[in-house]
């Protein structure tokens, strides 16, 4: 614990001033022979929260999972196109798979803290899992929990098992866990769908506080949430027996108030099958 070899930890401890720029270029995805996503071009800028919306099954999660190479965990999954992180292809030879996933964190729909670990160990799990050391573990835990807006609720029971937290707290713990490895981008797949309005509000506040430090991409079915937290918005749609496509994207305000495509207007106004 007192190992002083901490050359790279300085970077790990200090929160990056600004997140990374993530760009999907002509991304298409297949599960086996079935194409579920076609030609998606989205630029997710630093300092901007990007919302992905669309009806169920149109490929939002699939797209999100291509952004940190989780897509390939499904054995039959394939893809085309490229994903650029600050201009470098994350599927290229230059970047290691584990490094890509560390720099592009992910928060899942269902809160999934590690049940065999304490709250503090959960936050610091990313360090152990990536084999890194930091000078001051306790401080990293505190900063990460503060950034996730959970510190005040758990400061007195850091040694308690993570399973004892409420659903909303668990989800914020997962956010803290992702932040502890200092990612440049944070992907969130319906992070509030299992939560009550108060926890949802709390996580939305967290997103807004984080957005200047980390690039955030969020999938949501909640139109109000998309309007509240995002500045950029992409609408996905899959016609019957066809792969999903991005029908329209642009500033959130414009998508919701003055969409160009009638299908977008139907969807954001709730007039959709």
């Amino acid at each position: 614990m007192t190992v002083p070899e901490v050359d790279q930890s300085a970077a790990a401890e200090a929160a990056p001033a600004v997140g990374g720029v993530l760009e999907g270029v002509q991304v298409s995805c297949w599960f086996g022979a079935r194409k579920v996503l076609e030609g998606v071009d989205i630029k997710m800028d630093a300092g901007v929260v990007t919302a992905l919306i669309g009806p169920s099954g149109c490929g939002k999660s699939t797209f999100l999972r291509t952004l940190n190479r989780m897509h390939e965990l499904v054995p039959i999954a394939t893809l085309a196109g490229s994903v650029l992180l600050d201009g470098h292809d994350i599927y290229g030879a230059g970047l290691r798979l584990t490094e890509v996933r560390r720099r592009i964190g992910m928060v899942f729909q269902k809160p999934n803290p590690f049940p065999a670990m304490t709250i503090a160990d959960n936050v610091a799990a990313g360090l152990r899992l990536t084999g890194r050391k930091v000078r001051d573990r306790d401080e990293l835990i505190e900063t990460s929990l503060r950034r996730a807006g959970l510190w005040n609720e758990v400061r007195n029971r850091l040694g308690a098992p993570a399973g004892g937290l409420s659903g909303g707290q668990q989800q914020r713990l997962c956010i803290a866990r992702s932040l502890a490895v200092s990612p440049d981008v944070l992907l969130m797949d319906e992070p509030c769908s299992a939560l009550d309005p108060t926890s949802t509000r709390r996580i939305e506040e967290t997103i807004l506080e984080l957005k200047d430090q980390v690039t955030i991409v969020i999938v949501t079915h909640n139109m109000q949430q998309a309007q509240r937290v995002s500045q950029h918005c992409a609408f996905f749609l899959a016609a019957e027996d066809e792969p999903g496509r991005v029908v329209e994207q642009g500033p959130t305000e414009q998508i919701f108030s003055d969409p160009h495509d009638p299908r977008t207007a139907d969807y954001v106004n709730g007039r959709f099958g």
Partner: peptide, 15 residues
Amino acid sequence: GLREAALALGAPYWR
């Protein structure tokens, strides 16, 4: 989900 969470943090599979 736990395996995915660990991998999404940048962990090698064995870890």
